[in-house]
Design a protein around this nucleic acid. Structure first.
Length: 549
DNA sequence: CGAGTGTGCGCC
DNA sequence: AGGGCGCACACTCG
């Protein structure tokens, strides 16, 4: 059963299995009643519809998020011949139609106006189905649309549930590292002490360390040969100011990014609720807004504490990206290296490199396009041992340098380079080409090649993660046996290749098993019965800080 | 005064 | 000459 929901003009209507649009009355009771038939709900934007349903304690199993699916179908090479991809940009291509309203901000008029202008979801759904059917392997892109849409549901559920957060533990961590919370406008004791040592070391009592421009000037005055104040450059320098300055920067970073004001702004009622943005990154990874949820430093993860009687199941996929690459390429030698356990250890065991760190640095360099230093030296050895895997990323890079698109396992394609890029390439090969324009074009081409090289791996890994999470969600729901979302095991955090489940203690073992089975299922969804393995590390802990990452 | 830009650093 | 982000802060500009 397919049910398309429409909210144009502020009027809620529904079309069931291609029937006419009819008014639905109360949204939550309508959805709750029909959900028993296991329909696929089709709507313009999950982030508009689903929070309302969850607030009324109504969950749905599956949906198509037309806006997210539209973005995929417009760009994918698999559907590039379709009407949907060839027509002019429409309202469906508009960026982020819904901004979260700060509490108490009355933007009601604005929203009314917007609803009136929304495009027709029924027509859009038909166009999308036609586009999918036109694809060479419709199942591939259809799986991507389903996964992307499942992700949209999960994103709203994550925010609804929130990440359990203890202000008291957070404060203790900050006090331990920075000293007690100071009065407004003052530096915490340990930060002030580090600054004092910096000022002594270069004898500048009124140095302002928070201004990179001034700091750089002063460091150069003091005789340090640096071109920036970044830590990677400072660590190379032998000077008494370096140690205290790096210490200061570390503490200042914690204070400004995740200090007491962060806590007051983003944590309420014992929960941290960021906005997750599925499809927020071109590669298909999620973005977040509000509180920097995807950059939570390890230092403060100890503030994530399970409720009494509950526990956290933390799971991350081991060496996900190189495993994805091995599977994409069907590189049997690399698949074998990952078969026994740690993939990097397997590369060492094969005799390709000497240490685990070399294996890791070399693989990361291959996937990111690193050419210098250690990774550049190791790459030739990897290329000899794993020609298919390394060949796949090299080919993706060459395609990008030619301005071509590349495509992930399930069919998300990289964007075409912008007009500026194409113009630069054209200029460099034209009559009036100069040495400068040629070299600029080369540099831009290589840069785009590094992007497309990484796109296939990062994007396919993001697809695996979506499938993994969707499977976890389904399994947790079965475990819950009818209990409401937050009253049984549920997802509370997601970080590219890592998830956290909050569950009653007695469910922990079942949850751990579900998470592992879901990883196997995700591997099959992407790669069928390949020999690719996707092991996950699972930890059952009281607080997130105890899970080793 | 707010908007926009650059720097630096947190995460994967 | 290393991919993808978001955020805070300093700073500039209108």
């Amino acid at each position: 059963m397919i049910i398309v929901l429409d909210r144009r003009g502020g009027q809620l209507t529904a079309s069931i299995d291609d029937g006419p649009l009819e008014p639905i009355g109360d949204l939550a009771s309508f959805v709750a009643r029909l959900e028993r038939e296991h329909p696929r709900w089709v709507w313009d934007d999950t982030s508009w519809w689903y929070p309302r349903l969850l607030d009324a304690r109504v969950r749905v199993e599956r949906c198509f998020d037309l806006r997210l699916c539209h973005a995929i179908l417009r760009t994918s090479v698999l559907t590039s011949g379709s009407e949907l991809a060839r027509s002019a940009p429409s309202a469906w291509d508009a960026p982020s139609p819904i901004e979260r309203r700060p509490a108490g901000d009355a933007l009601f008029e604005l929203e009314e106006e917007r609803t009136a202008e929304l495009p027709d979801p029924v027509a859009e759904f038909r166009a999308q189905r036609t586009a999918v059917e036109s694809a060479e392997q419709p199942g591939r892109i259809d799986r991507l649309l389903a996964a992307e849409s499942a992700g949209a549901l999960i994103a709203v559920e994550l925010r609804h549930a929130g990440l359990p957060w203890r202000a008291r533990e957070h404060d203790e961590i900050l006090t331990e590292i920075l000293g007690p919370r100071p009065a407004a406008g003052e530096r915490p004791a340990k930060l002030a002490a580090a600054l004092e040592r910096v000022r002594e070391a270069i004898d500048l009592p009124d140095l302002n360390p928070d201004s990179p421009v001034e700091l750089l000037k002063q460091l150069r005055n003091a005789g340090l040969n640096v071109s920036s104040t970044s830590q990677w450059e400072l660590t190379e320098i032998e000077h008494p100011v370096v140690e205290p300055l790096l210490e200061y920067k570390k503490l200042a970073r914690l204070l400004s990014a995740n200090g007491w004001s962060w806590l007051e702004t983003w944590v309420a009622d014992g929960r941290f609720r960021p906005d997750y943005v599925p499809g927020g990154v071109v590669t298909g990874r999620w973005a977040t807004s509000g509180g920097g949820a995807l950059q939570l430093p390890r230092q403060i993860r100890g503030a994530v504490v399970a409720d009494p009687g509950w526990t956290l199941v933390v799971a991350d996929a081991s060496q996900l990206e190189p495993r994805i690459l091995a599977a994409l390429a069907g590189d049997s030698a690399m698949l074998a290296a990952g078969a026994a356990g740690d993939l990097y250890a397997g590369i060492v065991a094969s005799g390709t490199v000497e240490t685990r760190d070399q294996a890791k640095v070399g693989m990361l360099g291959a996937m990111y396009g690193g050419t210098t230093g250690e990774s550049g030296r190791i790459l030739p050895r990897l290329a000899r041992a794993y020609p298919r895997a390394i060949g796949l990323v090299e080919e993706a890079a060459r395609a990008g340098e030619r301005g071509e698109q590349v495509t992930t396992r399930l069919g998300r394609s990289s964007p075409r380079p912008g007009s500026g890029w194409q113009q630069a390439q054209a200029d460099a090969s034209g009559e009036a080409a100069t040495e400068a324009s040629t070299s600029r074009a080369r540099s831009q081409a290589r840069s785009w090649g590094r992007f497309t090289r990484n796109f296939v791996v990062q994007g396919s890994a993001a697809e695996w993660a979506l499938c993994w999470m969707a499977s976890i969600r389904r399994r947790l729901r079965d475990l819950g046996g009818g209990a409401w979302l937050t009253e049984s095991a549920h997802l509370v955090f997601f970080l590219h290749d890592e998830i956290v489940v909050h569950c009653p203690k007695e469910q922990a073992e079942d949850v751990a098993a579900a998470v592992r089975e879901a990883a196997d299922e995700a591997g099959r969804l992407l790669f069928g019965e390949s020999s690719a393995r996707f092991p996950v590390t699972v930890a059952v802990v009281d607080n997130y800080g105890q899970a080793k990452g």
